[in-house]
């Protein structure tokens, strides 16, 4: 009996090594990158998805459950983007810290105003999100607001290092604002450029840079592009031409390649999130690569 007890104590000691760092599980790579900017070595950051995966359609894999079990903080987009898999992770992981409403669950989209809030909720409109378009990460101004809120959340969860999070946030905000000014200068000539998008993934990017979205490859959000819809879109482009077609790294290249060939405009693959293209290994790189690709396609 005592041997068993001693063994259990030993097992517990081995299973739970000293909790030095905050364990953060980000739902998408952009939030993992933001957490790394704000927490540095203070947090052990993992991302549940990669840039090559569609965040709408993720399997609640056993490995993700194991990660959610150990997380102190979940950093997710929210606004129902992860509705198909995240609730399952939260419920089945036996981890009270990361439940909705707890400090250990951070929703980026809840920190900023959202675009494209539907006035009418009907599935005939496709896979619409009641709260609005959740793909907020490609607006650097919103990213700054989210960063400040996330820094506050990190210091709330790890008060011992509050000063460090605040310091890192101030440092990040300074570098970020400088970068925004630079990017806005570079991107000035993209203002008013008409574009076609695969999915409504780039609404915030368009909002920031002044791109004008004139068409979607998906007939309705979340519905696969069909031949009939693409043909119709091609017809509408005669009346209202676009300069380029945008798609995310995880989206199929076929529909945009087809339209690109027929309409004679370039199809541009954007990283969409951190890690989606060479050079987009952090948030700064993400915007550098995105701008470079947009500028290359709009001479």
């Amino acid at each position: 009996m005592r041997t068993a007890f001693a063994f259990m104590v030993l097992a517990l000691l081995l299973a739970a090594p000293a909790q030095a760092a905050l364990r953060v599980l980000a739902c998408e790579p952009e939030w993992a990158a933001l957490t790394r900017e704000l927490a540095g070595e203070l947090a052990e950051v993992d991302s549940a998805t990669t840039a090559l995966q569609d965040p709408h359609r993720i399997e609640a894999r056993p490995s993700l459950l194991a990660k959610a079990r150990r997380a102190d903080l979940l950093v997710c987009t929210g606004a129902e983007l992860e509705a198909g898999w995240l609730p399952l992770l939260q419920r089945e992981a036996g981890n009270g810290r990361i439940q909705p409403g707890q400090p250990g669950y951070f929703e980026a989209s809840a920190q900023v105003p959202l675009l494209e809030r539907p006035t009418q909720l009907d599935r005939a409109q496709g896979d619409v999100h009641a709260a609005g378009n959740p793909h907020v990460q490609l607006d650097p101004r919103r990213m700054a607001t989210i960063a400040a809120a996330l820094a506050t959340r990190l210091s709330q969860l790890d008060p011992a290092h509050a000063a460090r999070y605040a310091e890192r946030n101030t440092d990040f905000q300074a570098r970020w604002q400088a970068a925004i000014t630079r990017w806005e200068g570079q991107g000035a000539r993209l203002k008013g450029v008409p574009v076609v998008v695969h999915h409504r993934s780039f609404s915030y990017l368009a909002d920031w840079l002044g791109l004008v979205v004139v068409g979607d490859l998906e007939p309705k959000p979340g519905v696969e592009p069909s031949a009939a819809h693409l043909a119709e879109l091609l017809g509408s482009l005669h009346a209202r031409p676009a300069r380029m077609i945008l798609r995310a790294a995880y989206q199929s290249a076929q529909p945009s390649a087809w339209l690109s060939q027929k309409a004679g405009i370039p199809a541009v693959e954007l990283p969409y999130t951190v890690g989606g293209a060479p050079g987009s290994d952090d948030l700064f790189g993400l915007f550098e690569v995105t701008l470079a690709r947009l500028l290359a396609a709009a001479p």
């Binding site: 820094a151 210091s155 509050a162 000063a163 460090r164 999070y165 605040a166 310091e167």
Partner: peptide, 8 residues
């Protein structure tokens, strides 16, 4: 903690 909040 207070400093951090101020800085934030």
């Amino acid at each position: 903690d207070y400093e951090a909040r101020l800085k934030a």
